[in-house]
């Protein structure tokens, strides 16, 4: 079980969190023209990285904040966690 440092609450067990996918994906702006390909890339296409991965987690059973986590997908090492409005 991972140990994730919530930037708001501190070190907590993984079972308080839920995974929220790749944090490098940015939702296209509303009301803006976008090609089919770009939209498909946003909705479906994800890289299955081995190594460092920046991802969203929500501290569901805690502060309910969505946070950013930099994790190694092969070793589970967590390098850094940030608040939603912070950037790596």
């Amino acid at each position: 079980m991972l140990h994730i440092k919530c930037p708001h609450c501190g070190m907590r067990s993984q079972n308080e969190f839920s995974y929220g996918g790749d944090a490098s994906v940015k939702r296209p702006e509303l009301n803006k023209e976008i090609s089919d390909q770009d939209w498909d890339n946003f909705v479906y296409n994800r890289k299955s990285l081995r190594g460092k991965h920046i991802e969203f987690w929500q501290h569901l059973s805690g502060c309910r904040q969505w946070i950013k986590v930099e994790r190694d997908t092969a070793t589970h090492e967590i390098f850094k966690t940030l608040k939603a409005n912070e950037d790596f």
Binding site: S18, G20, R27, F56, Q58, L60, R64, Q65, W66, A84, N85
Partner: peptide, 13 residues
């Protein structure tokens, strides 16, 4: 609820 929080916190802060 998580869905709303996702958009409010991450997409449209």
């Amino acid at each position: 609820l998580s869905h709303l929080e996702y958009y409010l916190q991450l997409v449209w802060p």
